[in-house]
Nucleic acid binder design. Structure first.
Lengths: 202, 202
DNA sequence: CGAAAAATGGACCAGCAAGTCCAGAAATCC
DNA sequence: GGATTTCTGGACTTGCTGGTCCATTTTTCG
């Protein structure tokens, strides 16, 4: 936005976004006020509006961007090296672990319900995230094909899309029910599906 | 709750729930006020609180129950007769169609973000819905096994859980991006997974 | 028909949370 | 070092929304 910021300014802005992300993860968007964020980040009202002139929505969008980055970052380096069965397994464990840890509020999901997904920018964030994520999964599957572990006939893009959907749904269900069974089932069945398509299949 | 209701009373209550469900589907929970619901249902404030003494949350919960019932009902009769490949395919089409129609607000997802999933009752509704849904999928898979179309060795419960997760995630992604590719991929890959496990497999 | 209970209309209240404003402190820059 | 810009503090405003209250109408039922 405005480029005229000092070091201190950038630091404050970052502090606000990170602090807001924490609060939102703990309380959920619907129950978080600007004063909660103020409290957590040790800032004043004017600071909030100084860095996010358009108000709460702009701040929430910034948090969404922040959280979206975290999602993929938390899966690295495994997500980037899905070229053997072991690496897939390791990645699976990291995903399960990450989402079991993360309280029971999905920051991204709720963020978009609040901001409204039509907002320019809002939709783009999710779309981009999904695109990246699916791309990395597909790359991993192609690596398996290259290494002769999976049939070259496999429709990688479709299976990657399905796996991604399974993860999303698994997380959603976990958020609602508190049970990670579905997430694990989606991951394991997804990987099984790859295993069930060996290159020497009839 | 209170049993002393007249025919008119029941009708009004139902009108409120159904009208509220409509508005919520269109605008999303975060942007819907009691006055919106009043407007749509042609009721007064006092009626709202007469039928839902605990206020908005109680009303939202009633809507959630209503929507949860609709979810499974909309998939019938197909969901109840998943005993052949054709019936699975038909069911798949119905699911895709249903969710493509339904605007871009998932009533249930947003409802719980607002009410808070810890509320007694809230969690139960989702859990119960997922349980029923998964149960029907598993029953269908067992029917396939019985009919000699799928290996009896298949871990039906896990695969059903994974398929359910895929559907949820597919819907979630569609809500955010407006694209039903993932939902279709999840359904098709899920069914493929069944097809890939014939009873005469080595 | 008449009393009691249920249903309805709508004015009113209260609190909260987003957003505004301006004065003052700190940094930047020439 | 002084002017200018950025940053910060916090009191204040304002609109909205959930919720209350009571008077009135309608229904029920003996």
């Amino acid at each position: 936005m405005s480029e005229a910021v000092t070091v201190k300014g950038r630091a404050t802005r970052a502090r606000i976004v990170e602090g807001a992300a924490e609060v939102l993860r703990e309380q959920g968007v619907a129950f978080t006020t600007l004063d909660d964020i103020r409290g957590r980040t040790g800032t004043s009202k004017s600071q909030l509006f100084h860095y996010f002139p358009a108000g709460k929505d702009e701040l929430l969008l910034a948090v969404a961007r922040f959280e979206a980055d975290r999602v993929l970052a938390d899966q690295q380096p495994h997500l980037g090296r899905l070229d053997s069965w072991e690496s897939w397994q390791q990645w699976r464990d990291v995903v399960v672990d990450r989402y079991e840890r993360q309280g029971d509020h999905c920051p991204l999901a709720s963020l978009f319900l609040q901001v409204g997904r039509d907002r320019p920018g809002a939709r783009a964030i999710v779309t981009e995230l999904m695109h990246q994520w699916q791309g990395q999964l597909a790359r991993g599957m192609r690596a398996l094909q290259k290494n002769g572990l999976v049939s070259p006939a496999l429709d990688v893009d479709r299976v990657a899309a399905a796996l991604l959907a399974g993860i999303q749904g698994g997380v959603t269900i976990m958020m609602s029910t508190g049970d990670s069974t579905h997430l694990k089932a989606a991951l394991d069945t997804g990987i099984d599906h790859l295993r069930a398509a060996p290159p020497d299949a009839a």
